[in-house]
Write a protein that binds this DNA or RNA. Structure first.
Lengths: 221, 221
DNA sequence: CGACCTATTGAAAGCTATCAACTGGGGTGG
DNA sequence: CCACCCCAGTTGATAGCTTTCAATAGGTCG
């Protein structure tokens, strides 16, 4: 289990209950902005859902647990993405920072009062829903090698060709995202390396060498 | 391949291009309602995305294809659900009716003009996103038997206990939804039957016999 | 009643998970 | 400054589950 303690404050960071930097002078719906360290659990699956959150900067991982401990990382979020969604007033996922992150929080009631916010969230939800559809295809129909190729392409926008990508996830986290085991993820990395499609400077620093072959593996996506 | 011909009109039903019942007197953004037969492809993945659609009645299936023909049914929709989402002005999924269905269509530009519509879609997107998160857990971490149990519980609301559920999907469609093969789905049905958790009156008529055991299999969901 | 399509069941192969050992890098403490 | 420890990652061997290929059964419609 990763730490859920914020080393700056020494306390658990759970925005609905904890201190809220920058919000003292505003109402709770005025988008208080929080700066959060890496590897901090921001939301817990099953907690009462009072807030909706936007990633301003950094990376956040949403995950769900089965009663026996199996975990699925259901979504990877970056700047602009929204989380804190709820079924029956209960958070449906846990949220954990992968890197230091800046996050805006809104009271759920703000959705009705603030049409500009609602419009922004609507566009973002549409985009995230499309990404989830792609991810269902990955989880349901792709082989291990294809999943890892897809994962790396997803993290490496077309713009940054030839640059080195820093993975801020462990093999276990990648495995939980792709519906595999950490060993299978490791083997897939080794296979991509062996085929000359990627270069691993370190375990968490990847360069895509042959983008064409990667695209073909990942289903031309 | 299922038919994409509407037997009532004799023509392909593709709303952006085809005839639009009930809409002759209204602008294209005034939610023309269409009545569509079962097993009709309403939207094609990759077509230009001009409309956004709401299921009023019936069941709709969203699917994505890989270049080599592998298919994933990414979402099952019922009354209230929304589809016709787009990446880069292109439909991200194909949509096919599973039953006769009634569908509302909105011009995408209506989202900016109609805040009531936008608010409704926002709530619905949130719900669908949560369902997709659950589905990612199913696809990534559950065994074949667990997936089928989950599928049946999802189709059988708590209210209707003891009633017979009519599956409007073939084994192949269920398999494509659950990330399995049709043979594995069939074996899972047989196993659930053998264990006394369900009764199959016919291949497409299921009664859940032991809901508790089903819930345990499906991860208490 | 026969044709055809869907579903079921069986047998074998393949891919991923599991269990286990080993490697390597980073940090700590001597 | 170096040695050791610890954890993440890699690699190997085996098991298990699902897929694949194939044959049979069931049901519907002409």
């Amino acid at each position: 289990m990763r730490q859920i303690i914020d080393e700056r404050t020494g306390g658990t960071v759970r925005p609905p209950y904890g201190a809220e930097p920058h919000s003292a002078l505003h109402g709770p719906s005025h988008a208080p902005t929080m700066r959060i360290a890496a590897h901090v659990t921001v939301l817990h699956e099953g907690d009462p859902a009072r807030r909706i959150m936007e990633v301003v900067d950094g990376a956040v991982m949403l995950s769900k647990l089965l009663p026996d401990g199996r975990r699925q990382v259901v979504e990877l979020l970056g700047p602009g993405d929204v989380f804190g969604l709820a079924h029956d007033e209960i958070y449906a996922c846990s949220a954990e920072t992968l890197t230091p992150a800046t996050i805006n929080t809104h009271d759920r009631s703000a959705l009705e009062r603030d049409p500009v916010l609602a419009a922004r969230l609507l566009r973002r939800f549409e985009a995230q829903l499309c990404v989830m559809h792609s991810h269902a295809l990955v989880l349901g129909r792709m082989s291990a090698l294809e999943r890892v190729a897809f994962f790396l392409l997803r993290l490496m926008p077309d713009g940054m060709v030839g640059t080195t990508l820093h993975l801020s996830m462990t093999r276990q986290e990648i495995a939980d995202f792709l519906g595999l085991t950490l060993e299978t993820v490791s083997r897939a990395f080794s296979e991509l390396k062996r085929r000359g499609l990627v270069v691993l400077q370190r375990a968490d620093e990847v360069r895509i060498q042959d983008r064409g072959s990667m695209r073909r593996l990942a289903g031309a996506l």
